[in-house]
Design a protein around this nucleic acid. Structure first.
Lengths: 98, 98
DNA sequence: GACAATTGACACGCGTTACGTTACAGGTTA
DNA sequence: TAACCTGTAACGTAACGCGTGTCAATTGTC
């Protein structure tokens, strides 16, 4: 993967809040979080916490996993920037777990 | 989901370290982390960090995602225990995003 | 039985992060 | 002008991952 995955906060802002004409203030109230917390989230200043994912899921009736996956992809993309280079491969490989 | 998902550290211990007869000490060295960090991980005292996932992925030649997903399922399972109850549903639903 | 390696756990410290409250300045709109 | 929305800085709190150092208990091997 070469392109940076979209931040879940941006998706939430563009695909949920804007279409529904919801303000940050009102949305924060409905989600049960502070205005600051939501503002930082939709402005990509913080990542999607499991708690926030649960709230968004409840409010929008969408799957928590879909939101969590967005964050995971982004988290992984960022983590790969500092890939550990001091890892010694194990003698043999192993089976893949789900 | 009702049953608690298996901790990725346990999977790593059972399915990777034990079959290869690797000690915590040696494995920690090969992964490039401290013995404490690995010990806590395989004993379910800490969760799988993105960095650790990358290391395990490199060492075992498995996908990072598979390890991250294990943690995500567990994280979500735990988070659901304290489900937010003060969430007000939005007026309408929305489309599902990948 | 004795010695060396391994292990789980704990204390301490460090850096990061999500979150709440409060407050302020700038923008928009009625 | 007044009312509202917005981003953000400041401050404090609670977690969490990680490293180093240390210690007692366990395991394994001669």
């Amino acid at each position: 993967m070469t392109r940076k995955p979209t931040h879940p906060g941006t998706v939430f802002l563009e695909d949920v809040m804007k279409p529904l004409n919801l303000s940050v203030t009102d949305t924060a109230r409905m989600l049960g979080v502070s205005r600051k917390t939501l503002s930082e989230f939709v402005n990509e200043k913080s990542s999607l916490s499991p708690d926030m994912a649960l709230r968004i899921s409840k409010a929008t009736n969408t799957s928590v996993e879909s939101w969590m996956n967005m964050q995971q992809k982004l988290t992984l993309w960022i983590a790969r920037k500092h890939e550990p280079d001091n890892v010694i491969p194990f003698p043999q490989s192993m089976a893949q777990e789900s």
